[in-house]
């Protein structure tokens, strides 16, 4: 079962990468771009076939390794 974990910098945590992307979009002539935040997506192929159990397992993985709770939040979805 494929599970997708999206990891984002928490609100209030400086995201210089997002800022730099925003600046670059501006210089390409894209107007009206507000805040840009850059995170990462991690796809997992799990042996588990029960969606609830797969989600719970991925959440545990996110808490323990994939995201750093000090600076990042995460979202788990069945892909």
């Amino acid at each position: 079962m494929k599970v997708r974990v999206t990891v984002m910098p928490k609100n209030g945590v400086l995201d210089p990468q997002g800022k730099a992307i925003g600046h670059a979009l501006g210089s390409l002539g894209f107007d009206g771009v507000g805040e840009v935040r850059a995170g990462k997506v991690i796809e997992l192929d799990l042996a588990e076939t029960d969606p609830q159990a797969a989600k719970a397992a991925a959440e545990d993985m996110a808490r323990r390794l994939l995201a750093n709770a000090v600076i990042e939040s995460f979202r788990v979805e069945i892909a």
């Binding site: 210089p16 000090v70 600076i71």
Partner: peptide, 17 residues
């Protein structure tokens, strides 16, 4: 040490990138 939880906080990308 921060990632291992032995110290609090985290080290982000330098503000200047």
């Amino acid at each position: 040490l921060c990632e291992a939880g032995l110290l609090p906080g985290a080290l982000l990308r330098n503000a200047s990138l």
